[in-house]
Design a protein around this nucleic acid. Structure first.
Lengths: 189, 189
DNA sequence: TGCCCCATGTAAAAAGTTACATGATTCG
DNA sequence: CGAATCATGTAACTTTTTACATGGGGCA
């Protein structure tokens, strides 16, 4: 039941349509959670019937009409309750880790290729997060911004996203280097 | 459908019972995946009917009997197929991140407390992973072990787990420091 | 004597993924 | 002219979580 809270948190600063929300959750720009469009449309509907968000129709001539959603007082109260409750620890769940775990018994070439691919993906995401952070803090430096800025929440979660992707990248590159080195050693005899 | 592959990967080196497997997956010692006991018992049953693992009954007098599972040839082939297929990117999904995202609008004290708690948890896990790594590499240094050791798969995934938890800890401590500083600033002015 | 560990599950509910559906507009 | 974007969903399926069930042995 955390998707609803993720949606509420995402709508806290901006009024968004389901479509816009979906884009954020999909690309991982909303890097504190991930969800598919269908989930979001369904969740927004549920949240609206429960009075936690309100939608207003925006009629567009050139584009299809859309509904923009805002968090209500009840929605904010619900987020407050959620925030006060204790959170469970989070776990990694990643196909690639499973493959690496098995790398001694299976085709290492395939794993090597996927490590390289993932490293590139992680690097791209890290760069995206980096530029988002620069945009958020403007001309202030980070220390200054975190001391006195408003809206530090999204900044902090983006920092975690950045570190996570940098960690991914570094680990993938390290793993790839190890596998390459071992392949080379086998080739030498 | 990755749980089955996680189970196969976990059983690759050791023969384990459902209970033992559950403990690993629960404490996150099998830090490349996480699953509840019920899932594992169900998955083991399924894997056995599909011939991907075989169980052998071990009769115990003082303890209840148990069934130890091993990966079959078909199981290894299935892992091989899985490894060759392309993996999807992984996303963070964490309650605490949602709470931090909302921290500007909700009670920051609760978030601060949870950041501290999580930092401690992450630190404990990082230490556990650190000692697991030391055990795995024995008296060799890491470079040496990764070059010439066998079973580097579990070592590499454990390295990722370690970096992840260190990242968690550092980020939590940073976030907590920021929130404290802002509280102090508010109190002053 | 009460609580934790061993050991294995079933059943139901919630959450997440995959597949499919529709239709206009803008861009290369 | 075909593909991508805007915009919103429904339906079926898979996966994960929560709650419940059972029963002996060891330990404080």
């Amino acid at each position: 039941m955390a998707l609803r809270h993720a949606v509420l948190a995402a709508l806290l600063h901006e009024e968004l349509s389901g479509y816009q929300l979906a884009k954020k959750f999909d690309t991982g720009v909303a890097n504190f959670w991930h969800a598919l469009p269908q989930q979001l449309y369904a969740e927004l509907t549920r949240l609206e019937t429960e009075g936690l968000v309100t939608g207003r129709e925006v009629v567009q001539d050139t584009r299809p009409n859309k509904r923009l959603f805002t968090v209500t007082g009840a929605g904010l109260a619900e987020l407050e309750r959620f925030t006060a409750a204790t959170a469970k620890p989070s776990f990694i769940r990643d196909d690639l880790l499973v493959k690496v775990q098995a790398v001694d018994q299976v085709n290492a070439e395939a794993v090597l290729a996927q490590l390289r691919e993932r490293a590139a993906f992680a690097e791209a995401k890290a760069e995206l997060f980096g530029s988002l952070l620069r945009t958020m803090r403007g001309d202030r430096d980070e220390e200054e911004f975190l001391r006195h800025g408003d809206r530090i929440g999204p900044y902090l979660t983006c920092l975690r996203g950045l570190a996570f992707e940098e960690g991914n990248r570094d680990w993938c590159l390290r793993g790839a280097a190890v596998l390459e080195e071992r392949r080379a050693a086998r080739a030498r005899g």
